[in-house]
Amino acid sequence: MRKKLIKCFVEVFAVILSLVIFGIPFYFVILNSFKNRTEAAEMNISWPSEFRIIENYSEVLSTNHGVVIRAFFNSTVITVLSLLVLVIISSMAGFILQRRTGKGSNLINFLVLTGLMIPPAVVPTIWVLNNLGLFKTIQGLVFVEAALQFPFASILYKGFMATIPREIDEAAIIDGCGPLRLYVRILFPLLKSVTSTVVVLSAVTYFNDFVNPLYFLPGAKNITVQLSLYHFTSMYNTSWNLLFADVVLISIPPLILFIFFNKKIISGMTAGAVKA
């Protein structure tokens, strides 16, 4: 009986501790984004004297000719285009790398694994983009994002490809399917589940990316969500309520993805980690 009581006590304590450590920051941000300027500047978690929810959020959205809205638009465009390129190149690569083995494939596998580990060379990438006329353009950033996420995505595709029997390929070929049709009409639809994992995980990565837009997409016209938050930190260093409101706005898209694809995200991340 006593042992059970101790166990119960430990459990309650651990639950409360995790709630404090992981819950308070969220509570703190959301509550302070509702406060007025002077109260938010105190940065505490006391109950606000007035709720300025609509005022604060509309001020963030309208500030600087709607820079936040433009940033959301740009980030969405970059995310969608990067995902499109990424899915096409890595699913085709995963298909061939799993079906064909040999000297060539070994070298390619090594190069892909390298990309998983070593950080990209920044200024030389700018040099390449510049020579191609892609520096400071959305297309340029999209290619870089696709290239950097390619190792992870192609490894997931390769792993999943192994679960699709070769007999399917053979049957299709006998029925007169060419290689391209085999891939587009038969194999790609079968890869649906891993495609959705890649899309969800990479969408979060792209949307939250700060470093690559900072280097490869400078300029006010092409501002992204994370860069806009970063600029706000110097612009709003006295208006914490607005800064926190922006933090909340920016965290909504990942939250929505997490609510719908919770299991997919977690299993994808562990699979990627263990295979790598």
């Binding site: 060379a121 030389p124 990438t125």
Partner: peptide, 29 residues
């Protein structure tokens, strides 16, 4: 037949993008 179906041509798009925007900068660095 294997060579024909599982053609390395499928690797071209990935190869071009990965080479140009990751491997090449790494080497010239």
């Amino acid at each position: 037949l294997t060579k024909k179906i599982y053609s390395y041509k499928f690797l071209l798009p990935a190869g071009i993008i990965y080479f140009t925007f990751f491997l090449l900068p790494t080497v010239i660095s």
